[in-house]
Design a protein around this nucleic acid. Sequence first.
DNA 1: AATGAATGAGATTTCATTCAT
DNA 2: AATGAATGAAATCTCATTCAT
Lengths: 213, 213, 213, 213
Amino acid sequence: MSSNKSTETQTRTALSPTRRPGQERVAALLEAAAAVIADKGYDATTMAEVAARAGAQIGSLYRFFPNKDVLANALVERFHVRAAETFDAIDKETENRSVAEFANALLNVLGELRPDSRAIVALLEGTAELSAHRLELRRNLRKRIAQSLIHRCPGLRKTQADDVAAVLLQAMKSVRALTQEEGNGVRPAALNELRLMVQCYLAKTFADAGCPR
Amino acid sequence: MSSNKSTETQTRTALSPTRRPGQERVAALLEAAAAVIADKGYDATTMAEVAARAGAQIGSLYRFFPNKDVLANALVERFHVRAAETFDAIDKETENRSVAEFANALLNVLGELRPDSRAIVALLEGTAELSAHRLELRRNLRKRIAQSLIHRCPGLRKTQADDVAAVLLQAMKSVRALTQEEGNGVRPAALNELRLMVQCYLAKTFADAGCPR
Amino acid sequence: MSSNKSTETQTRTALSPTRRPGQERVAALLEAAAAVIADKGYDATTMAEVAARAGAQIGSLYRFFPNKDVLANALVERFHVRAAETFDAIDKETENRSVAEFANALLNVLGELRPDSRAIVALLEGTAELSAHRLELRRNLRKRIAQSLIHRCPGLRKTQADDVAAVLLQAMKSVRALTQEEGNGVRPAALNELRLMVQCYLAKTFADAGCPR
Amino acid sequence: MSSNKSTETQTRTALSPTRRPGQERVAALLEAAAAVIADKGYDATTMAEVAARAGAQIGSLYRFFPNKDVLANALVERFHVRAAETFDAIDKETENRSVAEFANALLNVLGELRPDSRAIVALLEGTAELSAHRLELRRNLRKRIAQSLIHRCPGLRKTQADDVAAVLLQAMKSVRALTQEEGNGVRPAALNELRLMVQCYLAKTFADAGCPR
DNA sequence: AATGAATGAGATTTCATTCAT
DNA sequence: AATGAATGAAATCTCATTCAT
């Protein structure tokens, strides 16, 4: 009797497969999800299409990702891990790089994680009522960017670094948006302009904060 | 959910009522649509909710807007008209303004049209498969921005103006995104940073193009 | 973007149709729901079957009852109203009736509301995790029975009346259970035994409480 | 959900493992099944949850119980065996006991087999379309109760004993229902009232049949 | 034997859109 | 013109059961 849809819907998480075939399937499912979400956006993505694109059955998809939100969160999680590595690499080479190179490196973070990044941007977009997970993604990215900024220019005040990071995250999203808009009249050169804008801004900001170079 | 099967549907247009009560109803419906789309995004917006928010009946909504796409397009149309006026005003006062003022004026275009702008940004977002109408909105906005750029700095080459315009449109969207993110850890000061970035970029660009001031 | 399934799922209630055809449809849907739930129990009842049995489309069913739980609650609500009348009638005629007649009248409450009562019993059954609505149904029925008991025998202490009411509610459910079990080897005479049991019990209880007759 | 398409499936039976570890596993699975069914009812019980509760794998569950129905039937079977012992014990001590004691002993049959009895009551409930096995459970219980009645009061006619047994089975279910309802406003004293009712009824019935004591 | 991944039918629910009144 | 009921395709999600390893 009675509908008992597990009172704690929020807590649900992706299942981690223990066997080989399961792990491969999960990877394929995530890849498919990234592709479809990148193409159509989160809302327009259907679980059926994700499954089909992965060559799986709908039940298989739900075995590992008990609902659509968890699937998106898993994508976000995976991005988190990969982004962390990218940021670490940026920090490591900071010394040898000009402001322009540093700016480009940041702007490329979303661009370099090729297959997923378009999906991630789509997930970052949502007008409102995002799952807590996705809101956290934004916060964490800003925090991580701020960290790299201070690492590169220790003279920056913490609060200013936060503000600049917020702006840079938008610029990173813009990279993808512009890339996507090629074909709708945006020329690749526009990307260069974006880079110029960020470089000019960072150069000024760092100089004001008393950082050499 | 999801962008519809509309393939030939798109040719349909909104009814333009000639009588007073009809005009008021249409205005209320558009207002409601803007509010809901701003809150939830286009996909998650239901026609029923729009009608309810406008205190209208679903049948009434469909009388004036034969489908969801037409409703969105009407919003875009209205924005177009209003944005045109705003850009004209900007162009008119260009002489008296510093680069910083010019930059701010542009950044405020989306910000000033308060109730609608969030909806418009939501409509600008959708990753793909936008109705032709919405793709056109992007193109037109870029074109209009480019026009203002050249008006302000005739030395700019046409193609560069297009590229800069593409970047500025992204910056305009960022204004909204940052505003929306207050409450998720973004401080209002971030907006100032965004303005600084654009100012610094435009100053450099105009200078390179040989524009005084 | 984002799945926004109205955060207040609990509050949802049945829609009250404003037009004639809607009212008839709602009545037909409730009738159908009662029939199917009576036959198969709540869990095994499908919304599709309810709709089909009412000659309606699934969408029509959901227009008036936004989910399965609300449908069940509507049934419960309707039963409440009808049961109230039945209890009132019992109270009105109390004076002229023997204990035996009073006992039978109570036992018939569930039996007399023919089409619905089997469904109601099915809804009363559920092992656990019933919707608050259904738990309330049980409480209210017990309360109403207790009220009739005290009306009939003012000498009863309030707490004892509550206890007796709880027992009588079980007996009322047993009426239906026994009726249902005819065909599985239970003879109609079993019902008489049940009546005897309740009569004998009430006679003793009333006598102990100092009630004449 | 819903009672399955099992039509010929029912003929299948549970595997009876001969080795120790197998027997333990089966016991654990049955225990888990009883617990879950008691909590949620048969329909809402999932095979996956039963397996999980037993710390077993779904495949393991299916190894011993080829489908859900067989699992329920195994529970019923086990109850049968235990109930038989309980009834035998009751019959053995009949001489020394008052009617009240006899009544209480019967009412306790379902109550004493603690972990399982709630599940059994849940399995007895289902409005219709029970598996043949479960219908048989009801018949057998009634038969066994009737046997004890005649053993205690040989003067009862066989048919009347059947009818009384049907009523008593309902009363036994009521014991559980009342116990379960504590917490929803039913006081423990209600159980005493139930006992009083049955005692008063049996006393009268036995007296009418010419049984001493 | 045990494991747990795979299957897929079917249930619930949503919503754009149409249409009778 | 307005109303709101009707439609039904499609999306999300569940779960009993099978089967490869």
